[in-house]
């Protein structure tokens, strides 16, 4: 029984194929040879978030159990795992969106730049202005046009300076690789765009408030493959300026876009590793089973 599957990874230099055999993963997978530049970047890795014994509940259901890990600065951090493993809950703890849901509780610590986010006196609303979030389902505000959608975060927080508005709209849409497609119709409703464009509009909206981190909760799962590629390409650019945490149920997506991957299973952190290593030399049997498609 030789079950094989191929992960197609798209890197800056082109396409690479990783073959993973479910049996006998030895050491023969040095296809990911990091270049000199890459190595330098790796050696200067900095931590953006650090969680310590993080547990989370919905009512009596425990969604996360004692998770301690690091989210690396200016990298794409992927969280993978089967449905219901707690990956969305995990990133929602990073901007304290978890507690918006009635009956939700958190125990443990999350440090952003070594500042405990669950300390008394931390205002979750102010935290969310530094840690942006993009959701699974594109959710542009239907009552606003494209331009107003981009500016909505600044308007909601009363920080919009009128004379800077045009500049902010253009730069945010440029960063989200949407400007060229919508610059002629900024007054059209945000909901008139296609699904992929709507999602990039939501990314632009998050970037407009100038966050440090962008949390993405399965941002491509409602999109077609072409729109997915556009967003994945975008991530490579965005990580130069922002720290990105992306939740995905697609292992190939994690392999394509991320630098570090964490595997969650039933609320527990099974393994967190450099993406290349996790997919080629999983240390845990459960990780191996998952990435080779034995379950999930």
């Amino acid at each position: 029984m030789e079950s094989r599957f191929i992960l197609e990874t798209k890197c800056k230099r082109g396409y690479k194929y990783i073959e993973i055999a479910s049996e006998g993963i030895s050491g023969n997978f040095n296809l990911f040879k990091a270049g000199k530049v890459e190595e330098q970047r790796l050696s200067s890795r900095k931590t953006k978030f650090r969680t310590e014994g993080l547990s989370a509940w919905f009512g009596s259901h425990q969604a996360l159990n004692n998770i301690s890990m690091k989210i690396l600065k200016n990298e794409v951090n992927a969280i993978i795992g089967p449905s219901g493993c707690g990956k969305s809950t995990f990133i929602r703890c990073l901007n304290r969106m978890h507690e918006v849901v009635p009956g939700a509780r958190v125990y443990g610590h999350v440090y952003l730049d070594e500042k405990d986010l669950y300390e008394d006196g931390i205002d979750p609303v102010l935290l969310r202005r530094r840690v942006g979030m993009v959701f699974q389902k594109p959710n542009p505000f239907p009552s606003m046009n494209i331009r107003e959608n981009v500016l909505s975060g600044l308007k909601l927080t009363h920080r919009l300076k009128k004379d800077e508005a045009d500049e902010i709209v253009e730069s945010a849409l440029q960063q989200a690789a949407l400007w060229d497609e919508v610059k002629e119709r900024l007054n059209k409703p945000g909901t008139s765009l296609s699904g992929g464009q709507q999602q990039r509009l939501c990314i632009a909206r998050s970037l407009a408030v100038n966050p440090e981190v962008l949390l993405m909760d399965e941002p491509c799962s409602a999109l077609d493959p072409v729109a997915t590629v556009r967003i994945e390409d975008l991530l490579h650019k965005l990580k130069e300026q922002y720290t990105i945490v992306i939740v995905t149920h697609s292992m190939s997506q994690a392999a394509r876009v991320s630098d570090q991957t964490a595997f969650l299973l039933m609320g527990e952190l099974i393994e967190v590793e450099q993406t290349n290593n996790l997919f080629t030399h999983p240390r845990d049997k459960r990780t191996e089973d998952y990435i080779t498609g034995k379950f999930g």
């Binding site: 969106m97 959701f135 909206r205 998050s206």
Partner: peptide
């Protein structure tokens, strides 16, 4: 939509 607004720090 409410969560979208909260996530922007509203």
């Amino acid at each position: 939509l409410r969560e979208g607004a909260y996530a922007l720090g509203g």
